[in-house]
């Protein structure tokens, strides 16, 4: 079976500067793939390129269809949920309105209601804050809201940009625990970008290491964990 998402020779950049210099990677159906790398390696750029938010080239196949020319809105509508860097919260709107926007493309009211109820199982805090302005939420709560919003699109693939960023370790553990459940219970395929390599490798089954816009190491999570270079530079032991 072909992978759910496959990028070949993906290039991307801002203005006239290229950040990605032709990378190949894939996400298996139902699997979790991690993109690791230091600051500025091109991790966020990769996710933005997948969703058509910046200039890009190369081939991207999603669920058997080419999407490298599609607009962001259409890529989302085809089943890619994106939790962007900075979480993309609509600060001025309430939590409930943020969630309604997540389900904007859907017409099945009953299905949306059921999904929201199920998401409250994962993120009970959101239920308590439903009528609150999203800008008043804590960082962890905003991250939960962003994940919930992306899941309400009913994606086949969830893109996560640094879900641990700026959060306290306990909250990070919570969120990764929930992501694990979402992967197993919902059979959700995930592509996660993380600076915290050890955290990401716990969740992932496959991983790629990015350095200045090129993939330098790839393999199963277990193999990557054993890799000398990765261990020394990114895991710190």
């Amino acid at each position: 079976m072909p992978p759910l998402l496959e990028a070949r020779g993906l290039t991307a950049g801002y203005g006239e500067t290229n950040v990605l210099h032709g990378i190949d990677f894939a996400v298996e159906e139902g699997g979790v793939t991690a993109l690791l790398g230091a600051n500025g390696a091109g991790k966020t750029t990769t996710l933005r390129a997948l969703c058509g938010m910046i200039r890009r080239g190369g081939e991207i196949a999603f669920a058997g269809q080419r999407i490298e020319r599609a607009a962001t809105e259409d890529i989302v509508r085809r089943g890619v949920g994106h939790v962007p860097d900075g979480r993309g919260t609509f600060m001025e709107l309430t939590v409930e309105e943020n969630l309604r926007l997540g389900a904007y493309t859907r017409r099945d009211r009953a299905g949306v209601a059921a999904d929201i109820a199920r998401l409250f199982d994962y993120f009970p805090r959101l239920r308590e804050r439903l009528r609150q302005q999203a800008g008043t939420l804590s960082g962890g709560e905003q991250q939960m809201l962003a994940i919930a919003r992306a899941l309400l699109v009913r994606p086949r693939l969830l893109l996560l940009d640094e879900p641990s960023f700026g959060l306290a370790p306990l909250i990070v553990r919570d969120i990764f625990h929930i992501l694990r459940r979402i992967n197993t219970e919902e059979r959700m395929s995930i592509l996660v970008v993380e600076q915290n390599a050890s955290l990401a490798l716990d969740l992932a089954d496959h991983a790629y290491l990015l350095e200045t816009g090129r993939i330098v190491v790839s393999g199963t999570a277990a193999a990557i964990r054993q890799d000398e270079a990765v261990r020394r530079s990114y895991l710190g032991y």
Binding site: T72, G88, F90, M91, Y104, T105, A150, V153
Partner: peptide, 10 residues
């Protein structure tokens, strides 16, 4: 308010 996020919601 947030055109980028809005696009990501479709």
């Amino acid at each position: 308010y947030n055109p980028v996020s809005a696009r990501l919601c479709g």
